[in-house]
């Protein structure tokens, strides 16, 4: 299976959706417009010749200082043709929304929950977008670059009032 075939097919089918294509290290990677993600993934999944039936990996990256700030990386795998394609979608900081792939691939469920939990990227259309790794009452998204690699200040009698006033306690 050749990268070139898939690349040409995608470009013929969605000329306006593709923003960039890279074949670094021999891996096909395509950056898509956010609004076309669902259409492209559905087309790839249901393609009669090369169905990408397995969503292998979904996660996000926080490129702090770059606009748009967030990027969601999706690796689709065709189990019959043993070919992998990487799709990338970007989302700006003030509108971190990306369409959810869970209706197309149930396996995206936990991976999207994890990405939302740790990076704060909202997946529109996800059946139950809740925190998965962090506690439910956690404030913030710890994998973001502006979230400090935190340690907790130790409370002594001389500073406990100040610390407890800022500390988010679990709600009753």
């Amino acid at each position: 299976m050749d990268n070139q075939i898939i690349r040409d097919r995608l470009q013929a089918q969605f000329p306006q959706a593709i923003l960039a294509v890279s074949e670094r290290f021999g891996d096909l990677s395509v950056t898509l417009r956010r609004e076309d993600l669902l259409a492209v993934v559905t087309w790839l999944r249901d393609h009669p010749e090369t169905p990408y039936d397995f969503l292998e990996h979904l996660s996000g990256v926080d490129y702090l200082g770059r606009t748009p700030r967030f990027e969601v990386v999706i690796h689709l795998m065709s189990l019959r043709y043993l070919h992998r394609i990487c799709l990338k979608v970007t989302a700006p900081e003030d509108d971190p929304h990306v369409p959810s792939l869970t209706p197309l691939y149930p396996t995206a469920n936990y991976q999207e929950r994890e990405t939302w939990d740790l990076l704060g990227i909202v997946f529109d259309g996800h059946p139950s977008l809740q925190r998965i790794l962090m506690p439910d009452d956690w404030i913030g998204h710890p994998q973001r670059k502006d979230h400090p690699l935190g340690e907790e200040e130790v409370a002594f009698t001389f500073n406990q009032e100040r610390i407890y006033a800022q500390k988010p306690f679990a709600k009753e």
Binding site: H57, S59, V61, P106, T107, N109, Y110, Q111
Partner: peptide, 15 residues
């Protein structure tokens, strides 16, 4: 590394 992410098979198998 700017970002490292692991696709952990255990988590995804639990689904």
């Amino acid at each position: 590394p700017w970002r490292v992410h692991f696709r952990s098979p255990s988590l995804i198998n639990l689904q």
